[in-house]
């Protein structure tokens, strides 16, 4: 019976005998005591595999919460090949504990398995858990002398330090000003409020009207209409009614029209003949419609050049 058992053991040993050498695992663990809430622990796992074997990356733990009190903050893996075709993996795991013990307590960071793929199949290397002692950061029941105001009492939150936003603020101000300026320019251009009363370009309007209606204005009443249009343009430009006697004052106020003083005076003289002298024919001979159109074009150019 004893032999049978011995043989079985030998057969079992032969069956499970490794095909190649075991991967070697070394751990560098931190101290196992003296931890408080929020402390970090760094474990370093050094795995050495033979040639032809590789660590399966999928078996490397991922950063993230491990359980309700433990967080794996950071995982770093370095690979270096050493002599003889073997490979050394250096895995640095950075844990942080959030456990709030009421008395010194032993906690365990759970172990995990690393898978190593080789030519003959996949093997597992178990990284054992790590036990450490976490302590409370204060007495369970604080004595009255230590209660309020003492260093043990709950401290006020740290005031968050202000972010430096100077550049963003400047950028916002500048872009805001640019936007506002553009809006004002657009309002001016479109004659929106408050520019709805801005001086139009009366001479430009009149010149356009006289040019496009030249055919219709050939008769006496057309000549009157043309003169009236010009008069209204002068009125609009001056902001008041301009009579023949006011021409000098008008030209003094609007020097851009000064070069055409004689023509303007001739126009007012012929307007007098037309409207008050009942002499449309004489007036239109003296200053024909084409001359009125020319004058309005010149005045329009002067008006635009003056801005």
């Amino acid at each position: 019976m004893m032999r049978v058992i011995l043989l079985g053991l030998v057969a079992l040993f032969v069956a499970s005998a490794p095909v190649s050498a075991e991967p070697s695992l070394a751990l560098k663990d931190p101290r196992s005591f003296g931890y408080f809430l929020g402390d970090t622990l760094t474990r370093e796992v050094i795995l050495r595999v033979d040639a032809g074997e590789t660590l399966e990356m999928a078996s490397v733990p991922l950063a993230g919460p491990v359980n309700y009190w433990l967080e794996l903050n950071d995982v770093k893996l370095d690979t270096e090949s050493s002599g003889g075709g073997s490979t050394t993996y250096r895995l640095v795991l950075n844990y942080q504990t959030f456990y709030t013990p009421l008395d010194p307590r032993k906690l365990t960071i759970p172990g995990f398995a690393l898978k190593v793929a080789g030519a003959s199949g996949t093997g597992e290397v178990t990284v054992p858990g790590f036990e450490f002692i976490s302590s409370p950061i204060r007495q369970l029941f604080a004595s009255s002398s230590q209660s309020s105001g003492s260093s043990v009492a709950l401290q006020p939150d740290v005031v968050p330090y202000p972010l430096t936003t100077g550049r963003e603020r400047t950028a916002m101000l500048v872009s805001g000003l640019i936007a506002l300026g553009s809006l004002i320019a657009l309002a001016w251009h479109q004659a929106w409020w408050p520019f709805h009363k801005r001086a139009a370009r009366p001479f430009t309007d009149t010149a356009r009207y006289l040019r496009s209606n030249a055919g219709k204005l050939q008769d006496a009443s057309g000549y009157r209409t043309a003169l009236l249009r010009l008069h209204r343009a002068f009125d609009l430009r001056a902001g008041r009614r301009v009579l023949a006697d006011d021409v000098d004052g008008f030209l003094a106020d609007h020097p851009e029209f000064k070069p055409y003083a004689t023509e303007v005076e001739a126009m007012f003289a012929s307007s007098r003949q037309t409207f008050f002298g009942n002499n449309v024919e004489g007036a239109s001979k003296q200053l024909p419609l084409s001359a009125l159109t020319d004058l309005s074009s010149k005045l329009a150019v002067a008006e635009r050049s003056a801005g």
């Binding site: 009236l228 008069h231 008041r240 009614r241 009579l243 307007s271 409207f275």
Partner: peptide, 8 residues
């Protein structure tokens, strides 16, 4: 009056 009433 003379600034507003159009002439002619």
């Amino acid at each position: 009056l003379f600034e507003r009433v159009p002439a002619p």
